[in-house]
Write a protein that binds this DNA or RNA. Structure first.
Length: 491
RNA sequence: CGGGGUGUAGCGUAGCCCGGUAUCGCGUCUGCUUUGGGAGCAGAAGGUCGUAGGUUCGAAUCCUGCCACCCCGACCA
């Protein structure tokens, strides 16, 4: 195996795949389309989870857990939802294996152990959850019901890519029920804001908040809101969605409540989710040809200390390093001292760069005697001498700088790859040139959207919430348009 | 599911056309020397050649079935 990664320039896709494996984030498993998330990758996911979970709790949500399996009769209750997911469901039909009489030592499915009703492995949990909510909700006093669950789901995708699209993935799904449409819409928008804040503050990933067109809407939703991000190859990635479900699921599962006034009404629903796909976004947005670049807020290890020493001097040096290590830890900075005696410094430098640790301190007796340490920041590769006297403050500040700096870099890339166009020719030229978001008028019909997708592979990513109304004409049909949409080729 | 391709050590591979002792690199292990940007030398371990059958004195190599994976398409919130 070559020491260097393929570059983004020569093969973006190979760069991504190699990076995910070499940084120890995930690998393909023995199961088609399913990945093994390795400890270092899972540590990043755990940091995402912890932060998001805090944000959910702060907005009044509680966690619960619902079954992996959904009886087919429940699954099919909300027709649009069922239809939307039907083609990618794993289905359990039997419950027992037996020895195969024809092939000694092998097992086969016991033909007598067929389930009376097939079980669908959840591709999303609306069905099982709403069938439960029917029992939980009787009165306006039971509302709003604000539940989240951390779970795995299965969608039998034809083509998979580590983190970006896998047959099984981890996510959270919030499912809420409300007395009024207004409240439910407010919840939908609130959670979109939570996602956007998380993406920008923690992943350092600038996102556009918007609403999906009917073509791209979640199956069973009245409206789908989303955050869209731009990757370094000019393709967009949907990073999170929040759905206003109207009364669709309440009606399908007969979830009604008595109002204060004594009436009987269906509740209003929302659902919202982000998945391990955020890992893909994180990787593709910031990393470079040397490996992963992690925002300090999500880095499992924020500072790695590499001791520089000669044979026999390691223990003595580690003693001198300890106060620095403890000082950083007391500041709440996660620090690792790479005291492996089996690898040389150059190897360690390269390895921690591959793993995206934001700050590296190389410390030898020479530095300590001079009252300095050498710091290297991962994002810019810049090296600087920090005075030993205030190393904790300096590193703390450095981590904040890095968090901000990689956000600004991603924002600059996004802004310089967002192009307003007024003709279809310009539209195509941008897509085939720099790529990125293309902001254009179109007539708002599904037909035009389909046509554009067929001809250019670009889809409407969203109608941004903050995009002002503006009269114009559709770049394809010339019909009037009141608003620009954001298009892009997407993952 | 359609078209194309590939299965050889932990990983990446040569050998296959034209049958005859299993090739090389990385990694791993041991020892010594090294250690401020991916160390050097010496030695060692590691293989049902995807799987089942066939042809043959003899199969990684030829033939057939099966399985798995990859790429392109279809599919994709």
């Amino acid at each position: 195996m070559s020491k260097k990664l393929p570059t983004r320039q020569e093969d973006y896709s190979a760069w991504y795949n190699e990076l995910v494996k070499r940084a120890g984030l995930a690998e393909n498993s023995a199961v088609r389309g399913c990945m093994v998330i390795k400890p270092y990758g899972y540590a990043i996911w755990e940091k995402m989870q912890r932060q998001l979970d805090d944000m959910f709790k702060r907005t009044g949500h509680e966690n619960a857990y619902f079954p992996l399996f959904v009886p087919k009769s429940l699954f099919e209750a909300e027709e649009k939802n069922a239809e939307g997911f039907a083609k990618e469901c794993a289905v359990v039909t039997h419950y027992r294996l037996q020895n195969d009489p024809d092939r000694p030592g092998k097992l086969r499915v016991d033909p007598n152990a067929k389930l009376e009703e097939e079980l669908i492995v959840r591709p999303t949990s609306e069905a099982i959850i709403w069938s439960t909510y029917k029992n939980w909700i009787q009165s306006y006093r039971d509302l709003p019901l604000l539940i989240n669950q951390w779970a795995n789901v299965v969608r039998w995708e034809m083509r998979t890519r580590l983190f970006l699209r896998t047959a099984e993935f981890l996510w959270q799904e919030g499912h809420t029920a409300h007395a009024t449409a207004t409240e439910a819409v407010a919840e939908t928008r609130q959670m979109l804001d939570v996602y956007a804040e998380f993406a920008e503050e923690h992943i350092a990933l600038p996102v556009v908040k918007g609403v999906k067109t009917p073509n791209e809407r979640f199956a069973g939703a009245e409206d789908t809101y989303c955050i869209e991000a731009l990757m370094q190859d000019g393709k967009a990635l949907q990073a999170g969605t929040s759905h206003f479900l109207g009364q669709n699921f309440a009606k399908a599962f007969d979830v009604q409540f008595q109002t204060k006034e004594g009436g009987l009404e269906h509740v209003w629903g929302t659902s919202w989710g982000v998945s391990t796909r955020l890992m893909g976004a994180l990787i593709m947005a910031h990393s470079d040809d040397e490996g992963l670049v992690l925002p300090p807020k999500l880095a499992p290890i924020q500072v790695v200390i590499v001791p520089i020493y000669k044979t026999g001097e390691l223990d003595a040096l580690l003693e001198r390093i300890r106060p620095i290590q403890q000082g950083l830890a007391q500041r709440g900075i996660s620090v690792k001292v790479d005291s492996r005696d089996t690898e040389r410094p150059g190897f360690k430098f390269a390895e921690w760069e591959m793993k995206g640790v934001p700050v590296r301190l190389a410390i030898g007796a020479r530095d300590l005697d001079a009252g300095t340490v050498e710091a290297a920041r991962r994002d810019t590769k810049q090296k600087l001498q920090l005075p030993l006297s205030d190393v904790v403050d300096s590193v703390d500040k450095l981590l904040n700088d890095i968090q901000l700096s990689i956000y600004n870099k991603a924002k600059h890339y996004r802004d310089t790859h967002t192009t307003r166009v007024d003709t279809y020719d310009e539209f195509k030229a941008v897509l085939d040139g720099p790529g990125g978001f293309v902001v254009a008028h179109y007539d708002g019909t599904s037909e035009t959207e389909e046509l554009i997708k067929e001809q250019t592979k670009a889809t409407v990513r969203c109608l941004p919430l903050n995009e002002p109304d503006e009269d114009g004409v559709c770049i394809v049909t010339g019909r009037p348009s009141q608003r620009r949409a954001w298009f892009a080729r997407a993952y």
